[in-house]
Amino acid sequence: RAAQGRTYGNLGNTHYLLGNFRNAVVSHEQRLLIAKEFGDRSAERRAYCNLGNAYIFLGEFEVAAEHYKRTLQLARQLQDRAVEAQACYSLGNTYTLLQDYERAIDYHLKHLIIAQDLNDRIGEGRACWSLGNAYTALGNHDQAMHFAEKHLEISRETGDRS
């Protein structure tokens, strides 16, 4: 049964990489079921994240957000800060796709704080870029400028010319 769980996970990932997002969802749902049977929260966390990603490419952003929220809860329970940051970043981007910029900002700020704690300058740069765009969408140009300047500073530091 444990091997079946891992295989469903691998199968889901392969469907995803091939662009078969519906089949990816079916496999990852099976993986999730087995992870729950075993009380394997790491595997559960991976399944929720993979499901969220697949729903993004199916254009079902609300469903994706729900799966990313479960990923975030589990990352916090497992005390995995890097994964927590990644889940916040995914949620920020998903809410941007949903044009809910206030919520997007909440999650991008959460991502920014963790990136700073972890000394992840690339993550911090991405958070600033995203925040600049979300504030622009809201018409808050002062905040947009603040984050654009931070993004420029970090991009120079990391040598990211693009």
Partner: peptide
């Protein structure tokens, strides 16, 4: 103020490009 219906957010597009080949491996 009225918002534009469709926005092209470059940071989101970049995220989706990365996401397309990102999987949580067993």
């Amino acid at each position: 103020p009225q918002r534009k219906h469709v926005i092209q957010v470059d940071s989101v597009q970049r995220w989706m490009e990365d996401l397309r080949h990102m999987t949580e491996v067993e």
